[in-house]
């Protein structure tokens, strides 16, 4: 059976490489989610702030990075980042082209996009906190930092879990586009395997199935987390 041979873990098999590639996809997406969480929190804070300039800046960020094709943003970060690195290299006396590592460029690009979506998620979650609970925290003498840490952050996180789950699924699929920078993720490895064995159908189906496994598993994970986080809610709410 040739299928087992090309998909197996033997010398001619691509099985092992595909598994490693799937882990690489998970890795890029995870780093992107973290970058996006940091950017998203900052952008959400800017959009919620009283300062008009910051608010406009936040709005521009979310409009641009949710409205422009992901591929274009990856090009911007990869080529633009490499240009910047090359310029720094030249300044330090190194002649020639320096590329931004494709993992860093990919994670950063997907993270920037993810940050735009996460900002909307966090903003919505903040607005969902009953105003009275924030007042009660003020009334008891909590200062800003404590209020954020004890009352706002845990509740934002709770309300944000379904949204973060959606953003994660989005980023998981966006990460496939990072393959254009040559990163050996699941997409790229399926492509290379398909090209070198001429078994296009087989490898794109197998690659697609591995993506389905990743999205289905993470869906489970987030549903479980949501249920856990909503245990403080009336039962009608958690069932909805």
């Amino acid at each position: 059976m040739w299928i087992f041979e090309v998909l197996g873990f033997g010398q001619k098999g691509w099985g092992g490489l595909l598994i490693v590639a799937a882990l690489m996809t998970l890795c890029v997406t995870t780093v992107a989610l973290i970058i996006g969480a940091i950017l998203g929190t900052m952008v959400a804070a800017a959009k919620l702030s009283g300062n008009k300039f910051l608010r406009t800046l936040g709005n521009i960020y979310t409009t641009v990075f949710r409205g422009v094709p992901e591929l274009l943003i990856i090009y911007l970060i990869y080529f633009g980042g490499s240009g910047a690195v090359t310029a720094i290299g030249r300044y330090l006396g190194y002649e020639g082209f320096l590329g931004l590592p494709s993992f860093a460029a990919g994670a950063l690009a997907v993270g920037i996009i993810s940050g735009a979506y996460q900002a909307e998620v966090y903003r919505g979650a903040f607005l969902a906190i009953p105003k009275g609970e924030l007042e009660a925290a003020e009334a008891i003498g909590m200062h800003r930092g404590l209020r954020f840490r004890r009352i706002i952050a845990p509740q934002v996180l709770r309300f944000a879990i379904p949204g973060i789950g959606n953003v994660w699924q989005l980023s998981l699929k966006d990460s496939a586009l990072v393959s254009v920078t040559g990163l050996a993720d699941l997409m790229r490895t399926s492509q290379v395997a398909a090209g070198s064995t001429r078994q296009y159908l087989l490898f794109f189906v197998v690659g697609g199935c591995l993506y389905l496994v990743l999205t289905a598993l993470s869906d489970r994970l987030f549903t479980g987390a949501e249920r856990r986080a909503n245990r403080s809610m009336p039962s009608s709410f958690s069932q909805a």
């Binding site: 009953p130 009275g132 009660a136 009334a139």
Partner: peptide, 23 residues
């Protein structure tokens, strides 16, 4: 703002809508 927090800690406030922290 430190004094404000300190004063608030000395004044108990009960709201119409309870405002217990739901989480």
């Amino acid at each position: 703002s430190r004094q404000v927090d300190h004063i608030r800690a000395e004044l108990g406030m009960v709201f119409q809508s309870f405002n217990l922290w739901s989480h």
